[in-house]
Write a protein that binds this DNA or RNA. Structure first.
Lengths: 145, 145
DNA sequence: TTCGTTATAAATAAGCAGTATCCATAAGGA
DNA sequence: TCCTTATGGATACTGCTTATTTATAACGAA
């Protein structure tokens, strides 16, 4: 699905659930959806304010909470930085996290589902989601060393 | 290694690095090491205070930071609860997290190393550690439903 | 198009986990 | 036993996030 179509779908979903379509919300959605940069609330706020300078930080917090509640974005919480938001896919997937530049990249790992379904069977847990972060140094930061 | 031996090893390591062995530190170590319950700072604090009632929360924070810096325990940060501490093994390993009772269990997943070494090769990242949490409902909480 | 209802935005106060500060105390070597 | 100095205790503070309050604007109805 194209980024534009994805945005439209979420906007339609908001409308369907009776939420109002405010310019601020649309701007947050546009910043998040199809953006592969996993921005922080601050970064979303800065971006949104280029178009709507009066937008409050609280509004961005409320909007990302709303979108997360709808299950269309994922919050990625880290201990040393503020949370980052993944608007690319609402389904869990592993992330590559550069400990140097703090960049976050999506990565696909084949066979992961089978792996944790085996764990579910062995442990008796009913597994509903996961979080898999690989920490290291990205190629760009390795060059800069 | 037995839990007792593990504690002794860490105490020796503290001494070797010139840190003082205070009763508070020893109590924190005893609470953490060999404990499979992944306690929070609050829980460690409560436990330590049964023996040393005057112990401050700040002391527990400082001690777990020290132990984490030495690489003998792992901090597990979550978005909805305060951090939990893993004193069982300093090496990264996956965790099963019950979203109902907030319990955390260690789990072994064979082949994980190969899996992310393949990712390293494909992506060019130099992977140094990871965090893998599986969220779900533990067997006990499933029974209580 | 206008009006009315009411969800939402802005501003800002409050909450909370974790950190820093400061002084008194006690660990450990001499 | 004494001395030096790291450490503990108390508490103020910080930064991220949430709650509160009031004014505004979205959207259905007429």
């Amino acid at each position: 699905m194209s980024s534009k179509a994805h945005q439209e779908k979420i906007i339609a979903e908001l409308r369907a659930q009776g939420y109002r379509l405010t310019p601020q919300r649309v701007a947050v959605i546009k910043t998040l959806i199809g953006n592969r940069e996993h921005p922080s609330v601050e970064q979303i706020h800065d971006r949104v304010r280029t178009d709507f300078p009066m937008t409050s930080l609280a509004t961005v917090y409320k909007t990302v909470a709303l979108l997360e509640g709808m299950g269309v974005i994922q919050e990625l919480c880290f201990k040393d930085t503020s949370s980052r938001y993944d608007g690319g896919s609402p389904d869990p997937h592993p992330h590559l996290v550069c400990t140097e530049c703090k960049g976050i990249a999506d990565v696909n790992i084949a066979g992961l589902r089978e792996l944790y379904q085996d764990v579910a069977q062995r442990s008796g847990y009913r597994i509903e989601s996961y979080r898999f972060d690989l920490f290291g140094i990205c190629p760009r930061c390795q060059q800069d060393e």
